[in-house]
Amino acid sequence: MTPKRVLFLIIYLSLSLSLLAQTSDCKCCSEKHAAFDFWIGSWEVTNKDGSIAGKNTIVKIEGDCVLRENWTSATPGYTGTSLNFYNLKTKQWEQLWIDNSGAHLKLKGNKFGNQMILSSDEFIHTDGKMYINRITWTENSNGTVRQLWEVLSEGKVVNVLFDGLYSPIK
């Protein structure tokens, strides 16, 4: 091959790959869409005291646009699932959790540093006070993930509902 043909071939391939990348139909391939990927995997979850809380599997589905969580508690018979996605319109992550008791929780928020922080809208509890659920997932340097579920009132933590450590199942 002559040097001119090699140069032409290189330019042609570069342009072709560039056009291919521009026409990619991956709608959820941005950095924002990948912000919660640290939670993907199969996990054994322990409580703060080291006791087993359950197992959780998080996978990407729907063309990598959704994280689906499948929770199985160490408490027999309790399961739940969540759908998590980055909403391009609101520019935040959203989660819808539903369990087999019929309970549900809607959260929204974003990643800050190594933490995904999602909160519920404010709600009135049976005591007449306003509360917010806030769940924080922290990506730890050793490959584990901490999940902390706090209840806030007037900006202050009034209860911790869950403090668990996710360890990868090998």
Rank of each mutant, 00 (worst) to 15 (best):
L67V: 03
P168F: 11
K27S: 14
C28P: 04
E94P: 06
K111G: 00
E62S: 15
P168V: 12
S167V: 13
K32Q: 15
Y131E: 02
N100M: 06
F112P: 00
E31W: 08
F36A: 15
A103P: 00
D127E: 03
F123M: 04
S18T: 06
V6M: 06
R146N: 11
S101D: 09
G77C: 09
L19N: 01
E139M: 11
G50S: 04
G41Y: 09
D37P: 04
T46R: 04
T75W: 14
A35M: 10
V66T: 15
L88R: 15
L88T: 15
S101Y: 09
N56E: 10
V157G: 02
L88Y: 15
I11N: 02
V151I: 10
T126A: 10
G50M: 06
N47P: 05
S119C: 03
T79V: 13
I117M: 06
N100T: 05
L7C: 09
S101W: 06
G50T: 01
L118Q: 08
H125L: 03
A53M: 11
L15M: 04
N142G: 07
I132Y: 01
I61M: 14
A53S: 12
K48G: 00
T126L: 06
S119Y: 00
N47D: 06
I10D: 07
K89C: 03
I52E: 12
V151Y: 05
S30P: 13
I52Q: 10
L9H: 05
L67D: 06
I10P: 03
N142W: 07
V145F: 08
S167T: 13
D37G: 05
R146Y: 02
Q22K: 07
D49S: 02
Y12M: 12
Q115F: 00
G155T: 03
C65N: 10
S30R: 15
D64I: 11
T90N: 12
Y131S: 03
T57P: 01
V66L: 14
I10A: 10
T144K: 07
N100P: 01
T2L: 08
F8P: 05
C28E: 11
K156Y: 08
M1Q: 14
N159K: 09
K32N: 15
S14K: 05
S51F: 01
Y131G: 02
E94F: 13
M116N: 04
K91C: 06
G109E: 09
T72H: 14
I132K: 07
G80K: 05
Q147A: 05
S73H: 05
S24I: 00
K108W: 05
M130D: 07
K106W: 09
L67I: 07
T90D: 14
T2C: 10
K156L: 12
N56W: 04
L17P: 08
Y166F: 03
F123D: 01
L7A: 14
L17G: 11
K106L: 13
C29H: 09
Y166M: 01
Y166H: 02
N133E: 02
A34T: 13
G155H: 04
F85G: 14
R134K: 08
G102I: 09
E94V: 12
G50C: 02
N87V: 10
T136A: 03
R146G: 02
F123R: 01
E31M: 11
A74F: 10
R68D: 11
A103G: 09
T126P: 00
S120M: 00
I135Y: 02
K170D: 13
C26W: 11
L118I: 10
K170L: 12
C65F: 09
E122R: 00
Q22E: 08
L96A: 13
S42D: 12
K129V: 00
W39D: 10
G102C: 08
Q95G: 02
